[in-house]
Simulated assay, not measured.
Amino acid sequence: MVHISRICFRKYGNFMDNLRLYVRGGIGGMALPRLGGHGGNGGDVWVVATKNMTLKKVKDKYPLKRFLGGPGGNSSVRALKGERGKDKEISAPVGITVTTDDGSILGELNAEGDRVLVAKGGNGGTPYSALLPKKGQAKHIRLDLKLIADLGLVGFPNAGKSSLLTALSSATPQIASYAFTTLRPEIGKLMYPDYKQISLADLPGLIEGAHINKGMGHKFLKHVERTQQLLFVVDVSGFQLASKTPFRSAFEAVQLLTKELELYKEELVSKPALLAVNKMDLPDAEDKLEELKVQLQNPEGN
């Protein structure tokens, strides 16, 4: 039997997983009209993965959400080559995909220290540009956070994911008998006796149609992309989301969860996965578990 230490999960207060920013590279410096020379290039704007950073911290520290590279220095009698403008760095959490407004990917921050150039500074003036400098690139960018975890809990609402967290750790997520109790991800670490640590993410419950952005939709599914392994949590008795929706057995729940992941992004179904059958203390749970085992061994016969 593997024993796991009880370690608190870190909760994301006012959790944010996307942020839109305005960035502009610095303008280049002027060349000296009388003697020529070269103006300094404007500073670039970078997004840099930084430890213990969150998107909420970025928003709170920079409420205007504007980041400008420094201007290049002008050419002068004492220095015909103007100084380069100062770069501007935007600290961001690990796990960020940086995109433009039209969805073009500029880069990803997968490890601390990773850097993405988001706005290049303008060139300084030269005799070949009539001594006039160039403006820096200007655009809106989006920082899109996808949680990175060793294990991600996947299940329909009220499947018992939060209860499982409580059993594994000293976390105290909200638990109730109604469907949507987890509205934002939680991520933390479990430590084994040999001090090996794994990170585990409790993610909001899926619903049918999530791949087309129903319910939490893409807000949930994008976090599944960077988990190394999935843990499907299924109620042995099945579930019914609402009185107007059909009842789904435990086997149907497994099929539907797999389907939602595949329809969102096909490669997600190639991730290693485990199945946790929950609520085994309910009446007839053992019989339903045996039925589920038979169905899983012969899925085509159902």
Score class of each variant (00 low, 15 high):
residue 1 M to G: 15
residue 3 H to T: 14
residue 4 I to E: 07
residue 5 S to A: 13
residue 5 S to V: 04
residue 6 R to D: 11
residue 8 C to E: 13
residue 14 N to E: 09
residue 18 N to D: 10
residue 27 I to C: 08
residue 32 L to Q: 10
residue 43 G to S: 11
residue 44 D to V: 05
residue 45 V to E: 03
residue 46 W to P: 00
residue 47 V to S: 02
residue 50 T to H: 07
residue 50 T to F: 04
residue 52 N to I: 03
residue 57 K to E: 14
residue 60 D to S: 11
residue 64 L to S: 15
residue 65 K to V: 06
residue 65 K to D: 03
residue 65 K to S: 14
residue 71 P to H: 11
residue 72 G to S: 06
residue 72 G to C: 06
residue 73 G to D: 05
residue 73 G to P: 05
residue 77 V to P: 02
residue 79 A to P: 05
residue 80 L to R: 14
residue 81 K to A: 13
residue 86 K to T: 11
residue 87 D to R: 05
residue 88 K to W: 04
residue 91 S to W: 00
residue 94 V to A: 02
residue 95 G to R: 03
residue 95 G to Q: 02
residue 99 T to G: 02
residue 99 T to H: 01
residue 102 D to V: 05
residue 102 D to E: 15
residue 106 L to C: 01
residue 109 L to C: 02
residue 109 L to Q: 00
residue 110 N to S: 07
residue 112 E to R: 01
residue 114 D to S: 04
residue 116 V to G: 00
residue 117 L to E: 01
residue 123 N to T: 08
residue 126 T to F: 03
residue 126 T to D: 06
residue 129 S to P: 01
residue 130 A to L: 12
residue 134 K to T: 06
residue 136 G to F: 01
residue 138 A to T: 09
residue 141 I to E: 01
residue 142 R to T: 01
residue 142 R to M: 02
residue 145 L to Y: 00
residue 147 L to N: 02
residue 148 I to D: 14
residue 149 A to P: 05
residue 149 A to V: 11
residue 153 L to A: 00
residue 154 V to I: 15
residue 156 F to D: 11
residue 157 P to G: 04
residue 158 N to G: 12
residue 160 G to M: 01
residue 160 G to V: 07
residue 162 S to T: 10
residue 162 S to E: 08
residue 163 S to K: 04
residue 163 S to L: 06
residue 166 T to D: 09
residue 167 A to I: 10
residue 168 L to T: 03
residue 168 L to V: 07
residue 169 S to G: 03
residue 173 P to Y: 09
residue 174 Q to P: 07
residue 174 Q to G: 10
residue 176 A to F: 05
residue 177 S to A: 14
residue 185 P to T: 09
residue 187 I to H: 03
residue 188 G to R: 02
residue 190 L to Q: 02
residue 193 P to H: 03
residue 197 Q to E: 03
residue 198 I to T: 04
residue 201 A to G: 10
residue 202 D to K: 07
residue 204 P to G: 12
residue 206 L to D: 07
residue 208 E to R: 14
residue 209 G to A: 05
residue 209 G to S: 07
residue 210 A to F: 07
residue 210 A to P: 05
residue 210 A to S: 15
residue 211 H to C: 11
residue 212 I to E: 14
residue 220 F to Q: 15
residue 227 T to I: 15
residue 229 Q to F: 12
residue 230 L to K: 09
residue 233 V to R: 04
residue 234 V to R: 09
residue 235 D to H: 13
residue 238 G to F: 12
residue 238 G to N: 12
residue 243 S to A: 13
residue 243 S to G: 09
residue 244 K to Q: 15
residue 246 P to I: 08
residue 247 F to Q: 10
residue 247 F to E: 09
residue 249 S to G: 03
residue 250 A to D: 06
residue 252 E to Y: 04
residue 253 A to T: 15
residue 253 A to H: 02
residue 254 V to M: 11
residue 256 L to M: 10
residue 257 L to H: 03
residue 258 T to A: 14
residue 262 E to H: 10
residue 263 L to S: 10
residue 267 E to C: 08
residue 268 L to H: 03
residue 270 S to M: 11
residue 273 A to G: 09
residue 273 A to T: 13
residue 277 V to N: 03
residue 278 N to K: 02
residue 279 K to Q: 09
residue 280 M to W: 01
residue 285 A to G: 01
residue 285 A to H: 00
residue 289 L to K: 12
residue 294 V to M: 09
residue 295 Q to Y: 12
residue 297 Q to N: 15
residue 297 Q to Y: 10
residue 298 N to R: 14
residue 299 P to G: 06
residue 302 N to L: 11
